[in-house]
């Protein structure tokens, strides 16, 4: 098995410093929507300038370089253990090069490990697939937006939400409203419908890898994604919560099976600094792209 450490450092650098084109385009569209000279438009212009500067100077878009979440798809007979070691090494090197902030602290003592290693840190999900090449996706998920993720159990009298898609809609709208002041708007919402308390959240976060411009393969969910995108923007929370027309850049949903007794709606919030990239290593050729 070839050592991929250097390539992984490149993936981390690209993810941390070079915002994907789909997110940048959505932000550019948002600038045009906001009123001229408003605080909202000023915030978006600052964001666009920051994206440009980060790319040009290979510096982190945001100083909170987040939890590194890796998804690995590998061929049969591949050593997960060795790749996990290479990922840990790559994180240490990327931290030394200041592509990442040392971001792993012991839960109780607060002691920072200094190199982005720790107990279950980073997160790595391995999947074997039928192809003969390796694909690694990375998301850097910041703490501000992670803190306003939420999981509702429906039916909920408080949300007036029943156990159906309309109930899910009410939960998502409520979560979007309550996220103001926490995540950095305009954000992206990933929603897991069903599952258990753990799988629902994982599914919600996986939605954040989807390109902003894609369509949900389920027509009913696709329509709801677009409806929620519009309704949340009508809340007028706006960029940075300054008031304005752009509160989210997208809503992405997926359904899981659940127990008869449970109905969770899990919502993951991603800030505008939506850092995720994919690397494929095929016949020795390395390609890093937006997901």
């Amino acid at each position: 098995m070839q050592d991929s450490t250097e390539r992984l450092v490149e993936l981390i650098k690209s993810t941390s410093t070079d915002l994907s084109p789909d997110v940048e385009q959505a932000l550019r569209d948002a600038v045009a929507r906001e009123a001229d000279d408003s605080a909202a438009q000023g915030a978006l212009n600052t964001i666009m300038e920051n994206v440009r500067m980060s790319r040009a100077t290979a510096r982190p878009i945001c100083q909170d370089t987040g939890t590194p979440i890796f998804y690995v798809w590998h061929p049969e007979g591949f050593s997960q253990r060795k790749l996990a070691e290479q990922i840990k090494n790559a994180l240490r090197i990327a931290t030394e090069k200041a592509y990442l902030r040392p971001n792993a602290v012991a839960a109780l003592s607060g002691q920072n490990s200094g190199d982005n290693s720790g107990v279950d840190f980073p997160t790595i999900h391995f999947h074997e697939w039928e192809h003969d090449y390796l694909k690694i996706a990375l998301m850097l998920k910041g703490g501000g937006c992670e803190n306003c993720g939420v999981q509702y159990s429906i039916p909920s009298p408080e949300l007036a939400a029943g156990r159906d898609l309309q109930g899910v809609r009410k939960a998502v709208l409520t979560a979007a409203c309550q996220a103001q002041g926490f995540g950095c708007a305009p954000g992206i919402l990933g929603v897991g419908i069903g599952g258990d308390r753990a799988t629902g959240v994982i599914k919600a976060k996986e939605q954040l890898f989807r390109p902003l411009t894609d369509n949900n393969p389920d027509p009913e969910l696709d329509a709801m994604e677009k409806q929620l995108h519009q309704e949340i923007n009508e809340l007028n929370i706006g960029p940075m919560g300054f008031g304005g027309k752009t509160t989210v850049l997208g809503v992405k949903m997926a359904e899981l099976h659940r127990l008869p007794a449970s109905f969770f709606v899990s919502i993951a919030y991603m800030c505008w600094a939506d850092r995720r990239k994919t690397m494929t290593i095929k016949n020795g050729n390395v390609e890093i792209t937006a997901p």
């Binding site: 600052t46 500067m53 945001c62 909170d64």
Partner: peptide
């Protein structure tokens, strides 16, 4: 004073 969240490179400048 509200700074622009995430505008880390620009503020570092």
């Amino acid at each position: 004073l509200h700074a622009i969240g995430g505008a880390a490179t620009l503020i570092a400048e």
